[in-house]
Design a protein around this nucleic acid. Structure first.
Length: 208
DNA sequence: AAAACGATCTACT
DNA sequence: GTAGATCGTTTTG
């Protein structure tokens, strides 16, 4: 088995996720998404997130009730919610206590480790396209439906850790992506100026 | 059983 | 900046 690089070894604890989605979405920026497979370890710094709220959030997958697909977001925090759409997968971190339906979508990461492996999975694309986008980062790190409901606090297969060189990040936010979402509150968060943040959707409201 | 719907991506101009 | 591909999941008849 591959030895986990000690700088990424400690998963964020349950308490980190057991808070409201907006707080978790903001604080996930700068953290490191870690994926361990038999092929090796991949890791990337989270640079873009999007919060989905428990109640009155028509954009949430849980808004119209529980189904087989969205069961994970009705469960406890600190788990992954993975779904497929348009031939790709997207990954969320479930937040707030079990029974609520909040989550944070991971929209982009900046590659830190296992870059060769990620590039192999993605095929030949320009470097900044490697993990810029929720579907792309899942392809690069081999996240699929097998990880739906996975416990992110276990520190195996898939987890999130502190950045080894913790430093302040400058955060901005902007409306959600997608049609009809323009009037939504500012629930998409990203690290200002990072090349792996979605282009053409630059932030509107600086904060922090 | 059929139809509709995207928390997307790529390839254009 | 936008059109079109594409398919698993959900909803409807």
């Amino acid at each position: 088995m591959h030895k986990v690089d000690s700088q990424f070894a400690d998963p964020l604890p349950l308490d980190f996720y057991n808070r409201d989605s907006v707080t978790v979405a903001r604080e996930l920026l700068g953290k490191v998404l870690v994926r361990l497979t038999p092929q090796g370890l991949c890791a990337g710094r989270i640079v873009e997130t999007e919060a989905y709220l428990a109640k009155n959030d028509a954009a949430s997958h849980a808004y119209r009730g529980r189904t087989n697909r969205n069961a994970a977001i009705f469960g406890p925090p600190g788990r992954a919610y993975v779904f497929s759409i348009h031939q790709v997968f997207c990954v969320n971190a479930v937040t707030e206590p079990a029974g609520t339906t909040s989550a944070v979508l991971i929209r982009a990461i900046e590659p830190l480790a296992g870059i060769e492996l990620m590039a192999k999975r993605r095929g030949h694309v320009r470097s900044y396209d490697l993990t810029r986008g929720p579907g792309k980062l899942c392809q690069a790190t081999a996240i699929d439906l097998q990880l739906d409901g996975w416990d992110l606090t276990r520190g195996s297969r898939l987890w999130i850790a502190d950045h080894p060189d913790a430093r302040g990040v400058t955060i901005s936010n902007s409306p959600r992506i997608g049609l009809g979402k323009a009037k939504d509150p500012l629930l998409r968060f990203f690290i200002t100026g990072n090349q792996y943040v979605s282009k053409s959707r630059a932030g509107v409201a600086a904060s922090e």
